[in-house]
Amino acid sequence: MSQVYIEYDFKISPLQPGTEILIAELGAAGFESFVENEDGVQAYIQKEEWREDILSDIFILESDEFEITYGQRDIAQVNWNSEWEKNFDPIVVSDQCAVRAPFHKEYNVPYEIVIEPKMSFGTGHHETTYMILKFLLETDLKDQTVLDMGCGTSVLAILASMRGATTIDAIDIDEWCVENSKENVARNNCSYINIALGDASTISEVTKYDTIIANINRNILLNDMHVYANAMKVNASLFLSGFYLEDLPLITECCNNLNLEFVENKEKNNWVAAHFIKKE
């Protein structure tokens, strides 16, 4: 949780094309992102990626065509999303599952999930989360072994647990999500969920799952699909989301090549959630 970013604040004259060239050079040197403003640009890099001489390769700083001054400061990672999180509406899926914050009133539904997201993804508001929750409500998960890859708040793992799954692994690459998952899992009294930090290489080579859920993005799904396929029992289900309708053919092709057969998909505002089954 000790993530720190370094911000450089550059003042540039003349502004153009100085700003543009500076951003191009900083980008090539490893800076992640930039904010353009009236007198220059702010540039950001994670402290872990930063090195003492990072600006030594930025040649525009030496150019006599531009006058550039700068300052630098550390910015500690905090919950930047707290403004939204203190006042969002609860979500109800198929009249059966409610996802709400601790400050909302209780819901009289079979599956009531309480989430305090703290800048993790998975409150049910996003179409992709909503559609996977729907899939899980339509699927028999009793006594199953389930993997939630890229778990975010662990909202999907929690519903899987409430639906009867008895061994659930929830994995995320982000430390904040892992911490947040632990809090949400405890808050909802789900004792069968194991939470781990990591990417697809964290997935056990021994455990075979009845159901795998991955709501991430197209490129990561395509890259890691073989790992998921390998970790599934025959006839196991794979629920994928985090991509648009136009990317479904690519995802389906990748799955077909791994003996994963397309069953059906849901669509909401051009977002897709798709169900595949592993064949023998």
Binding site: Y5, Y44, I75, W80
Partner: peptide, 28 residues
Amino acid sequence: KLQVRGGAANPSPPVGPALGAAGVNIME
């Protein structure tokens, strides 16, 4: 106005503070 790497937006500076203060759901 930001410049962010494709496929790599995350809720840290500058995306986090720039949008969070305005009450936007950054994760969205």
